[in-house]
Amino acid sequence: MKNRMQVKIKNLVMKSPLMTASGTSGHANEIEVLEKSGQILAGLGAFVTKGVTLKPKEGNPEFRIAETRTGILNSIGLQNEGVEFFIQNEIHHLANFELPVFVNISADSVEGFGELAAYLSDHDSAQIISGLEINVSCPNIKKGGAAFGTDPKMVEQIVKTVKKQIDPRLLVITKLTPNVTDITIPARAAIQGGTDVLSMINTVRGMAIDIDTQKPLLGNIIGGLSGPAIKPVGLFMVYDCFRSIPECRSGKIPIMGIGGISRWQDVIEYILAGASAVGIGTSWFVNPDVFREIHHGLTGYLAGKKISISDLIGKAHGQLAME
């Protein structure tokens, strides 16, 4: 029987368009503590790791999380043990998932990104990886992150450097920040730099203030907003890119839609807007069954309509998509 959920990202065939969003499912086998992790993984088409940096990073001070209405603010600050630790101790767990793995990478300089890409390509264990997601959009770190993501020149340069250093077999995904006026500008820059795939969006900058202490609540002051609250933002950005960038419309540069997805209907919306795959992050903190539920909902919808996910990509654009 045909797998209606199957999607293709460049050469990579994914059994489902659902992916984890970076930073929300850990580096490796953390989610296996859940008794139903098998069912979660069964619904996934790919796994995206938490951001990895060259050197270990201890992260931001407390508090790192605050709840908002239908969303959360986080300022984790990319806490991780560094790429070496990741390769030695964590990456091999991912082999068990039998899923394509995208490693989210972050650095505070262009060279840093290049070095990371080279390191991850050269290393033996890295053959588990199917691609790298360049994070030029983290709002929670002082240097790099979103500061890079808002500067098209920088984006282009980073993607170029990574592209040069990376094993050509690996996909390069560029994750864009929503904290810009026009998302298509950095998107075009990333394409110029040679990215294979675009993913959007990362978290939206925001903050919270504690009225008792009369001070900002988050240790880092700034946080990134995620969860259902940002879905309209992400949705439009995907739509905008698909609409205005010919490479996206022709399917040459697929888009991974991320931001606020919490039900299967949201996934369909993203696909219709032009995404080929979607990442789900915050929602599954709230509901660990979310992947299963969404997968279930999607299969029902597709079977009822007798269509596949790939038939729906960009459908919201009507004739435009056909051009």
Binding site: E30, G59, E62, I65, I76, Q79
Partner: peptide, 24 residues
């Protein structure tokens, strides 16, 4: 304060020492 409860979101950190080094 916690986000996920299973260790993936890294929100609920505290300061610990390992080999004399402070970490979260």
């Amino acid at each position: 304060r916690m986000g996920c409860g299973i260790g993936v979101c890294m929100s609920c950190v505290c300061r610990t020492k390992k080999d004399q080094k402070s970490q979260y």
